Computed example of a mutant assay.
Amino acid sequence: MPAVTEGQPAPVASFESSRELLFGVAYRVLGSVSDAEDVVQEAWLRWDRVDHARIADPRSFLVQVTTRLALDRLRWAKARREAYVGQWLPEPLPTAPAIEDGAEIADSVSVAMLVVMETLSPLERVVFVLREAFEFSFADIAVMVGRSEAAVRQLARRARSHVRERRPRFRQDRDVRRRVTERFLAACLGGDLRALLDLLAPEVTLCIDGNGRRGVARNRVEGAEKVGRLLVRGLRRVLRPDGAAVAATGDARDDIGDDIGSGSVVDVNGGPAALITAGDEPIAVIVVDVDLAADRVTRIWIIANQDKLGGVEGRRPGRPRPVRAAG
């Protein structure tokens, strides 16, 4: 794919000006950074072969090509995910804190939303992304997906209703999530079950994507007591080999112990998260969903599939911040 340079040909400039949009569409449809990058690369190859003089609106054409490529890949991917060992979770997308300036954009790329969108049909998901995240008209979406406008409106209504029933109930706040995430990790790493139970909502759920990794729970775990005991007993043993460090959000400045080391802040999918590393290798990313009114954790997603963590490892913003274990 071409790099951005001054004085580049108009077709290259058109593609470069749309690249962020194309990746945004592809990632939200697929939930995979690597697959989205592949789709954008293929879109460039197709764009490079067309007669540009016949394209009246390059941006719309490129979104249409990217949408159809992403839809085809999603259909293929969903078949593979049905055979996935354990829970399948989205690949973390490194983001800048500034994404919070646009709450709707941040919400559309959040792990919580991507998990909900996994329950949509491929076509419903594409229509939902184009309409809700990028506000394309129904007429434009109809052209992009090769359906009638009436059919697209029906798909959009069905998808919106489905998402509304399953989406997280709580609007997230960066500062609250930062504070709760730090306390959550400190309790886990300190083996403090009492402190952890104080943070967990009674109906809390835990999902771990380990892709068959030994010792990782393959089914969703529900209830504060079960989730708390699993985390206290298993987080270090399963997710953190000797010498790992823990990255989390928060203002703590003290070391959490020689056996764990210091931590660093990461931003993924429009919000703060925790990164567990062993040496220079990422072990897991942990994202929590928080009930703002009660400061309680309602959902926990742990992405421990090593194949999904390379992008997070290479883009850790800011100075490492240590996290202190409770007790």
Rank of each mutant, 00 (worst) to 15 (best):
L193F: 03
G271M: 00
R229N: 03
A273D: 07
A244C: 15
V227A: 08
T249F: 15
I286L: 15
L193D: 08
I260V: 12
R214A: 10
I276A: 08
R253T: 14
R240Y: 10
I260M: 02
T205E: 15
V238G: 09
R214V: 11
D267N: 12
L199D: 08
R253W: 13
E222A: 10
L196V: 00
L230Q: 03
L197I: 02
L235T: 13
A293M: 12
D255M: 08
L196M: 03
L196D: 08
G215K: 06
V290C: 12
P241S: 14
R194V: 15
G215C: 11
L235D: 04
L199S: 04
V288F: 01
D255Q: 04
G257H: 05
A284L: 07
A294E: 15
A248G: 14
G243V: 08
T277M: 09
A274Q: 06
V221P: 00
L193R: 11
I283Q: 14
A284T: 06
A293S: 12
K226T: 12
L239W: 13
L239C: 11
G234I: 00
T277N: 08
G271V: 00
V238L: 14
S262G: 06
R233I: 01
A224V: 03
L275F: 02
G263V: 01
P282F: 07
V268G: 05
V285W: 02
D280A: 12
R218D: 07
E222F: 09
V221D: 03
R218H: 04
T249A: 15
G243Q: 08
L206A: 10
L200N: 07
I276T: 11
E225S: 14
D255P: 06
L206C: 09
V290I: 14
V232K: 07
V287D: 14
L206N: 06
A245L: 09
R229V: 01
R220M: 09
L230P: 01
R233S: 11
V265G: 00
R236G: 09
G223R: 02
L197G: 04
G263L: 03
G279D: 04
P282R: 11
A284C: 09
D254Y: 07
